[in-house]
Design a protein around this nucleic acid. Structure first.
Length: 291
DNA sequence: TCTCAGGGGCGAT
DNA sequence: ATCGCCCCTGAG
């Protein structure tokens, strides 16, 4: 494998942090699938061992994905402004944000609606198995992330084989929309506000999913996906009214963290999900009875 | 076997 | 702005 230096980067934590669903930890290595490649990674202290398949040695892909061109130290200083962030940073040192492919991010987070992380991972692997391309690495079979044109031309029944339920229609319509209009290119060139607006026109994409794409793919550090957990830390830690609409909550946290709310949100997300302080009762959010 | 929530979004009102 | 519903899974 190739080897390069890697500083202030917790690869394991980052790849398991819920911003991505495509990585598996097998025999000491992380294997992740993307549109054209499977990536194999391992961190040993300040070194990164890496390889790509079937095209080998694609450093550009790895470097871009891991978002190594980031002034992490400065960002940490900016967001470390209260006891919650201070504690989160201590518990989850060197947690980073990735820069994932646009198409992959849109598809993955459309799937995440009303699904848990494990279920999203399962569905993505099913879709890849059905619509991706087989790649054998270390005598194991992986499948590349499905291309949009394949998802767009699939039948709803085929898509539903991936256990994605009502999201099948969203995936099909949005894949076709992005592919035919080349939206990856046009949206990538927009400002954060305009990009959010365009993203929300896509089927299955609302505020939360749009913010995921803005932060995890397009690199807008101040975009914050406020899922149920985000709304919980805002109400539990910072005293926001649970009834505040999404846009108001977003406005508050963006104002508070001044430019890097996305990073702060990622730390707080890990913190509240994994530590769950016993003193704090989790707020129940907007679940209606369903029969 | 049953209940419940899961990193929401859509469409009707 | 609010509300019922959407399909399915994993956990308890």
């Amino acid at each position: 494998m190739n080897k390069t230096e890697l500083h202030n980067y917790n690869l394991s934590l980052t790849l398991q942090s819920g911003q991505t669903f495509v990585w598996d930890f097998i025999d000491g290595y992380y294997y992740g699938f993307t549109t054209n490649s499977v990536i194999k990674l391992k961190q040993v202290k300040d070194n990164l061992y890496w390889q790509t398949f079937p095209e080998s040695d694609n450093w550009k892909l790895v470097k871009n994905y891991l978002r190594l061109d980031t002034d992490y130290t400065t960002i940490l200083q900016r967001i470390n402004k209260d006891k919650y962030l201070n504690s989160a940073i201590k518990h989850f040192p060197n947690l980073r944000l990735l820069r994932q492919d646009f198409n992959e991010t849109v598809i993955a987070f459309i799937l995440s609606a009303r699904k848990n992380i494990k279920a999203v991972k399962g569905s993505l692997r099913e879709l890849s198995k059905i619509f991706g391309e087989k790649v054998t690495v270390d005598n194991m079979v992986f499948y590349t992330f499905p291309k949009l044109e394949n998802l767009a031309s699939a039948t709803l029944a085929e898509l539903k084989d991936a256990k994605i339920g009502y999201r099948a229609r969203f995936i099909k319509v949005t894949a076709k929309e992005i592919f035919t209009k080349n939206l990856q290119k046009t949206i990538s060139a927009l400002s954060e506000e305009d990009a959010r607006s365009e993203l929300k026109k896509l089927s299955g994409v609302g505020d939360k999913v749009a913010d995921c794409v803005l932060l995890y793919s397009l690199g807008f550090d101040n975009a914050v996906p406020l899922d149920v957990w985000g709304q919980r830390f805002l109400t539990s830690y910072y005293g926001l009214d649970p009834k505040l609409p999404y846009a108001k909550m977003r406005e508050w946290i963006r104002d508070y963290f001044e430019g890097f709310a996305g990073w702060a949100g990622q730390y707080l997300f890990e913190y509240i999900r994994n530590l769950k302080p016993p003193s704090q009762r989790l707020v129940r959010l907007g679940r209606k009875k369903s029969k």
